[in-house]
Amino acid sequence: MDLETVKERAGPREFSPKDDMPEEYRKAATRMIQFHANSEIMGAYLERPFIRQAPSLERKLAFSAKVQDELGHGQLLYRAAESLGIKTRQEMLDELANGQGKFLNCFHYPMESWVETPMIAFFVDGAAMRRQATLKSTSWEPYAHAMDKVCFEEGFHVKHGEAVLHELMTGSKKEQEMAQAAFEKWWPRIIQFFGPTDKQSTHHGFASEVGLKKMSNDELRRAFLNTYIPKAEKYGLVIPDTPTIEKNDDGTYNVAEDELDWDEFFQIAKNEYEPGLGQIDSRKKAQEAVAWVRESMDNHEQRLYGGTSPQAAD
């Protein structure tokens, strides 16, 4: 299929592995889905210490289940990316380990205290869910199918995150202050979640023309703020002064984007931000430490199915 045809036909769930897609499409889709999958893994990696640190047995259960779901989302997404025929899952995981794989800005920051968990689990997951809901109508069918299941599960994450936030903000004065401090630290990063305005984003145009991406960064950020600013305020969180946020007459918000630290954002985007690198490297060590198990399973598979493994890549 040539690119013009792709652009003409680029409706929801329009293209599947049986279509002969041009390389530009397959590469753009791989980049986008791989980024998404990597983010699931790195988000889970960031949150995993809080399974241990959860302050009640049932919170621990919920946190374990949440991290489990994120890994599950990674599984679905890597499969959707693999189906484009550009890279195998192991190649993508190796790229992630080697610092070539890119992922969301928020997951490059360290997370040290329980009070930070709802910043990810409520706000970042809420932002992610906003975007994911639009991706149910992406043009790559396997990606849309992955989104069906991801969105099905994600409601638990956001509500669980909200429950943790609610507990903190109705807890002791100390807990409320700790939560507010965490909010101030995370707020600019959360606003940057959707990336820079579209004119600064290099990949937006094409991804949108071929139906991979359904809404612009600006539209998504606006929708997110309209919902989550009132929520934050409802729980007693004070929105930090920077960046300046103005409320329009119609109840929507404008963000003074140039007040945000975009140098740091682009440093992160290149995997050159120190705390993020630490996360990448320690995950790499963990991945390499169990390479022997994967080898052993590959040998088993080889003995069982020889060269015609039904699990062979697409």
Partner: peptide
Amino acid sequence: YRWAMTYNFEAAAEEVAASEDE
């Protein structure tokens, strides 16, 4: 603990509500 319905809050956004319904 795996289910959205367990957390007794009105869904924060329409996509959260849709997920909870499913």
